[in-house]
């Protein structure tokens, strides 16, 4: 029912909005020409962005998480998306991509050929990533092993197979700016950047409306699990009473205050967060404690 309605809105809106409105947007190459990417810094961006959680092969652990051959499936209301190969392989991966190609993909969800990407690729969050971080990430990605694995096609129902309609989705939901505002010291600002731009925490912890956009009034207040099983927890202080030390420990080892471990899709997130510098995990913890309490 909701799905059918969404489909109708999707088609009607795309038709009404017309070509110009749904045309893909690109970054200004001027913002990127002078940047020199540093792989070591890019490694932090990579782990904070959780790229391996989606782009490594299903079930990969340890070093194998650095082989970005793609293939994992992500269930959604619109069908199943498969993450593509983003290893440096020139044919099957993104070996031939420039920094601006990567920037267009992450900031505007636009492919080198000018197609829209589906928001299963969390560019709605990455849109806030700085040009320098993207240049560093690009430099790091080129150091990873190449994999000659072909991409899997997404399994979507009509009309979601029409990428053109995504222009409207972007117009509605691609926003700049920050959700948590107010006085920010350096640590809290870093935590916000890690959580809202790179970590895309809200993509899982915030519920969505009928068109798949985030319901920003319920920021991090928990959401149904897209896999269909159970829910993703509310992590605002209204529901989560963990101390900052508890949060840092969770992001480091996956241990909850009861010494059980992070489960479900959070286990992969923790594998990435565990690779960050300690100061970054502390900044994330500070951010989580500052979230607006929502019941």
């Amino acid at each position: 029912m909701a799905k059918g309605l969404t489909a109708i809105v999707f088609v009607a809106a795309a038709a009404a909005a017309g070509w110009w409105f749904t045309a893909p947007v690109r970054v200004d190459p001027e913002d990127y020409v002078d940047l020199v990417g540093v792989p070591a810094r890019g490694e932090v961006v990579f782990h904070a962005g959780g790229c391996a959680s989606c782009h490594s092969a299903a079930g990969a652990t340890g070093e194998a998480r650095l082989i970005l051959s793609g293939g994992r499936g992500f269930a959604s209301d619109f069908g199943t998306f498969h993450a593509p190969n983003i290893s440096p392989d020139p044919e099957h991966g993104i070996g031939g991509w420039s920094v601006t190609d990567l920037a267009n993909a992450m900031v505007h969800g636009t492919s080198p050929e000018g197609r829209h990407y589906y928001p299963a690729f969390p560019y709605a969050a990455y849109a806030r990533v700085t040009p320098q971080d993207i240049a560093d990430l690009h430099a790091y990605l080129t150091t990873l092993p190449a994999a000659a694995t072909p991409d899997l096609a997404h399994e979507l129902g009509f009309p979601f197979t029409l990428r053109r309609g995504l222009g409207l989705w972007k117009a509605l939901y691609l926003k700049d700016g920050w959700q948590v505002t107010g006085d920010m010291d350096e640590v809290a600002a870093r935590g916000r950047y890690l959580a809202e731009a790179l970590g895309h925490c809200a993509e899982c912890h915030t519920p969505r409306d009928a068109l798949g956009g985030l319901d920003r009034d319920r920021w991090m207040a928990g959401a149904p699990n897209p896999s269909g099983q159970g829910t993703i927890p509310n992590i605002t202080p209204a529901k989560l009473d963990w101390s900052e030390a508890d949060l840092i420990a969770y992001f480091t080892s996956g241990f909850t205050p009861d010494y059980d471990t992070a489960g479900g899709s959070m286990a992969d997130v923790v594998s990435s967060l565990a690779q960050l510098p300690e100061a970054d995990r502390a900044a994330l913890a500070a951010y989580v404690r500052r979230l607006k309490p929502i019941e």
Partner: peptide
């Protein structure tokens, strides 16, 4: 702690 948590998890 990290490696231990990783083994349980």
């Amino acid at each position: 702690m990290g490696a231990l948590g990783g083994a349980c998890g």
